[in-house]
Nucleic acid binder design. Structure first.
Lengths: 167, 167
DNA sequence: CCTCGATGAGATCCGCCTTGTTCACGCTTG
DNA sequence: CAAGCGTGAACAAGGCGGATCTCATCGAGG
C-alpha cells in the first residue's frame, strides 16, 4: 500500500472526495514531520508515538572498502507502536469492522457502536492470557530477593534523566 | 502533541471543521493499522514505511521482581523513517513554509507555489552534491565497460527478487 | 469511566549506518 | 496522461549501540 492507496482508502472511509482526502493525508504527515523536527513528541493513543531521539557519535564502515567512517552525533525520528497497534498486528486483538461512511453524522454514529462492540470482544481475549502469567511470577520472586537492592540505585539515576526530557 | 492537537492542526491546514478532520485522521491510522496487520507494507514516500515484522522467541524479565518470562515468537509493527523525514529531523533539510489553507482551491494554489519554492531551496542544497556525482559516473563508465554486463545480470536477479516481494 | 502510556532493571537480540551503483517505483508537475 | 525527478530497495561486512519486552501501578488521555 502506498500513499495513493492510503488516500483512496481514507476517502472511502470518510465519504470525502479524493482531493479532500489527499489534503488531509498530506497535512497530517507534514504536521507530524514538522512537530517531530521541532522536538515535539506526537502521540496517537493506541497507534503509537513519533518523536525525535538523539543518536550519539559512533563509527560505521564502508562495506566495499572496509574503511571506518566516523558518524557525528545526530537526531533521528523514531516511532514506538502503541499497545493497540501491537495487539492487532500480533493477532491478539481484532478491530471492529470498519463502516464505510456515507455521511458525516452517520459515520460517527456507526463508529461509536462499533468500538463498544470491539472493546467487549477484546476484553474476553485479554482475560485468559493474564491468568497464565501470575503462576510464573510466584516462582521468580523466591529466587530473586537480592536483585531488588541494586534496582533501587539505578532507579534514581533514570528518574532524574527522564525529568529532563520535555515534550 | 497528542491526537487532539494533531486533528486541530490538520483541520487548520485543510480548512476543514474539527469533525471532518477527526474522521480523516482516525480513518488514516485505522487504515494503516489494518493494512499492516494484514501483512501489507504501508509506504509513504519521504515519510516512512510501516510494516509487520517477525519477532523470535526470547526471554524478558519483570523489572519489579526480576522474574524471567519467556516470550513466544510474535509479530510486531515496525516503522522505518524515510529519508526526507530523517533529513528534516536531523536539520539537514528544511521544509517549505506551510500555508494555512482557507479554501480548497486556495489551498492547492498555495501548495503549488510552496512546493516550487521548496524544490528550489532543496535544489540548491542537492545541486552541489549532484554535480560531484556525475563526474564520477563519467570516469566510471570509461574504465568499467565490462561491469555493465555484470550489472545487467544483477539487475535481472533483483527484478525477479522484487517481484516475489508482494506489497 | 475506561483505556492507554510511562516507569522500573537488564539480558539478549536486533538495527544502525557507512559508500557506491543501479534499477524500479512513486509522486508531482505540466 | 506523460514525463521527469525523487525516493527506495538491494547488496557488500560487521561492530557497537539501541531496542525490546516483561508485570504492576499510577497518571494522562480519550
Amino acid at each position: 500500500m502506498n500513499k495513493a492507496d492510503l488516500i483512496e482508502a481514507v476517502a472511502g472511509r470518510v465519504g470525502a472526495d479524493k482531493k479532500a482526502a489527499t489534503n488531509a493525508v498530506e497535512a497530517l504527515f507534514d504536521v507530524i514531520t514538522r512537530a517531530v523536527a521541532e522536538g515535539q513528541k506526537v502521540a496517537i493513543s493506541g497507534f503509537g508515538v513519533f518523536e525525535k531521539i538523539e543518536r550519539g557519535a559512533r563509527t560505521a564502515r564502508n562495506p566495499a572498502t572496509g574503511a571506518i567512517v566516523k558518524l557525528k552525533k545526530t537526531q533521528v525520528p523514531k516511532f514506538r507502536a502503541g499497545s493497540q497497534f501491537k495487539e492487532v498486528v500480533s493477532g491478539a486483538r481484532k478491530l471492529a469492522k470498519a463502516a464505510p461512511a456515507a455521511a458525516k453524522s452517520g459515520a460517527s454514529a456507526a463508529r461509536g457502536t462499533a468500538s463498544k462492540a470491539a472493546s467487549k470482544a477484546t476484553g474476553k481475549k485479554a482475560a485468559p492470557a493474564k491468568k497464565a502469567a501470575p503462576a510464573k511470577k510466584t516462582v521468580a520472586k523466591k529466587s530473586a530477593p537480592a536483585k531488588k537492592s541494586t534496582a533501587k540505585k539505578s532507579t534514581a539515576k533514570k528518574t532524574t534523566a527522564k525529568k529532563a526530557t520535555k515534550r
